[in-house]
């Protein structure tokens, strides 16, 4: 293994890693918003909203994320949506992970024991008051770990936007292979940085989960 080469290109990979982190954080935030809205829609009393929520989830989960990225970036201009590669990447990844987060959040909410709702309702709390004070605080605790799994998948999924030339880790590795002909070193380095990001995120999720765990 050519360690000198690795040391030489390392700063550029760190820069690319920073782009990967930005992609991950922004699409995670968008995903959380989409997930919350999606879960609310799927659990709504309105048939129309439930349908929209279900359609969103099955559309996104039924097609490859790469196709979703391509549709937004390459297909967008055809219908008047002109986006930078980075923007298209964030939007596509965010909408994508949002569908998975929809199911995570919905699952957490419906797994709160029915007796909790009954107890709150018999005290006289409204549906909304019950959700805010009883169901949601318990569901939030239940969803941290599974959301961590979604975020893990999202971070690794950011590699897809290399295909639309966003200069993130995977794209950077490919570019340096073109000039160095050392695929093993370049992919090894990119992989190591992904792993570092995943490790830190996973630790943070575990910490948060323990911190808010029910006593």
């Amino acid at each position: 293994m050519d360690t000198d080469l690795i040391i030489r290109v390392f700063p550029y990979f760190i820069e690319a890693g920073w782009v990967t982190i930005q992609l991950s954080v922004l699409s995670m935030l968008l995903g959380l918003v989409c997930g919350a809205l999606g879960a609310a829609a799927r659990l709504s009393r309105s048939v129309v909203l439930r349908f929209i929520g279900a359609a969103y989830v099955s559309l996104i989960r039924g097609t490859p994320a790469l196709i979703q990225v391509f549709i937004l970036y390459f297909g967008g201009p055809q219908i008047g949506i002109q986006l930078e590669a980075f923007e298209a990447g964030v939007l596509a990844l965010g909408f994508n992970i949002g569908a998975y987060m929809t199911e995570t959040m919905r699952g957490a909410i419906i797994s709160v024991d029915r007796g909790q709702t009954e107890a709150a309702r018999t005290l006289g709390l409204s549906r909304f008051e019950t959700f805010r004070a009883v169901t949601l605080p318990q569901a939030l605790r239940l969803m941290i770990r599974p959301l961590g799994v979604n975020i893990n998948a999202l971070i690794k999924g950011t590699a897809l936007v290399a295909a639309i030339s966003v200069v993130e880790l995977t794209y950077t590795a490919q570019r340096y292979i073109g000039s160095t002909y050392k695929p093993f070193e370049m992919f090894f380095l990119a992989g190591a940085i992904y792993m570092a990001i995943i490790y830190v995120t996973g630790t943070a999720v575990s910490w948060l989960d323990r911190r808010v765990a029910l006593k």
């Binding site: 024991d113 007796g115 909790q116 009954e118 107890a119 709150a120 309702r121 018999t122 005290l123 006289g124 709390l125 004070a133 009883v134 605080p137 318990q138 605790r141 029910l214």
Partner: peptide, 27 residues
Amino acid sequence: VRQNIGMVFQHFNLFPHLTVRENITLA
């Protein structure tokens, strides 16, 4: 109406994320 009708369940259904004090005072 339900505020006037207290109910006690077989499985207690206390709110696990709240202390005993908060369970009493929430409603």
